[in-house]
């Protein structure tokens, strides 16, 4: 069959909402875009364990510690679901890990911000996971089958992440003056970086838009960001706290919240590696990998020994 026909058939399937599966023919760029996006997503889950891991040993109670461990463990699991989905496209795990460690592959910039206080665990769950969920819910309907299935599983588990974050802040918001200040401070620091998670504005690009045509994505950055602002602007009232944006107000005519301008300089600086924790995060990943080398070797040696023994028996 000619290439052109194959591409037409492929687009027909997409238009009819038929999922693309690993062995199906797909345009090279579709494969590459998915590999890039899914692996970036996986790396984000893995690096995303670090800011929270920071607080496991310092959680204020055994209950909070158990919750935080469960959440970080989920994130490891989410990373693994996603790596496995990317592998179905022909990318090896080895290559993905090496690309992360060499700095070639990217992960979400939000994890290059530090978690300074316990209240940050609440703000990360509520705002950062909340922003991620907007994207992830959309991705449960993405056109590549293994990616969509991984997202369904992830979304089921992610909901507890956001709820525990909000509840953490809720407890602080009902606490002492110092605890309330802690809560407001965390919201102030995480609000703008959370909005940046949605990426550049739609107007930043005039290029042809294959991700939408191929239904890898179904909503634009600005659509998702607006949805997020509308949701959080309501929820923050329940905490009795405020969002650090003087321009935030309900706009009757748009039926949406208006909000102020994001600091795009900061956005690009962090993307380019100049965020507060870029180097620290990658160093931590590489150290974990190096320190775990002997465990991987031992596991392989043990498996080989068992195999030899079983053959002999």
């Amino acid at each position: 069959m000619e290439m052109r026909n194959l591409e037409e058939l492929f687009q027909q399937k997409i238009d009819q909402e038929v999922k693309i599966e690993p062995k199906d023919w797909m345009p090279d760029a579709y494969r590459k875009t998915n590999i890039r996006q899914i692996s970036q997503h996986a790396h984000s889950e893995i690096v995303g364990m670090l800011p929270e891991g920071n607080w496991i040993s310092r959680a204020p109670s055994l209950k909070r510690k158990a919750i935080l461990i469960a959440k970080v463990q989920d994130e490891a699991g989410h990373g693994l679901y996603l790596y496995a989905a990317a592998e179905t496209l022909g990318q090896s795990r080895e290559q993905m890990i090496n690309d992360l460690h060499s700095g070639k592959a990217k992960y979400s910039s939000i994890f290059n911000y530090p978690t300074l206080t316990w209240a940050d665990m609440g703000a990360v769950g509520w705002l950062v996971d909340g922003a991620a969920i907007m994207n992830q819910v959309m991705l449960t309907r993405t056109s590549y089958g293994p990616y969509a299935r991984a997202m369904v599983r992830i979304c089921k588990e992610e909901s507890f992440h956001q709820r525990q974050g909000f509840e953490t802040l809720l407890v602080l918001s009902k606490g002492s003056e110092a605890q309330r200040a802690l809560c407001q401070d965390a919201i102030n620091r995480w609000w703008w970086p959370s909005l940046m998670m949605f990426g550049p504005r739609d107007s930043e690009s005039t290029n042809s838009d294959m991700s939408m045509k191929w239904k890898i994505k179904r909503k634009t950055n600005d659509e998702l960001r607006q949805q997020f602002v509308d949701m959080i602007a309501e929820q923050v009232k329940l905490l009795g706290m405020t969002l650090p944006d003087p321009n935030l107000r309900w706009n009757e005519s748009r039926n949406h919240c208006d909000f102020g301008e994001i600091n795009w300089d900061e956005f690009w600086q962090v993307v380019k590696g100049n965020g507060p924790c870029n180097k620290e995060r990658l160093e931590a990943r590489k150290k974990a990998w190096e320190d775990g080398a002997w465990v991987r070797e031992a596991a392989q040696a043990h498996a080989n020994k068992q195999r030899t023994r079983n053959k002999a028996a």
Binding site: T33, H41, S108, M134, N207, M210, N221
Partner: peptide, 10 residues
């Protein structure tokens, strides 16, 4: 030809 950046696409 895919230069438009979406959420999670760094």
């Amino acid at each position: 030809f895919i230069k438009k950046l979406y959420y999670g696409d760094i």
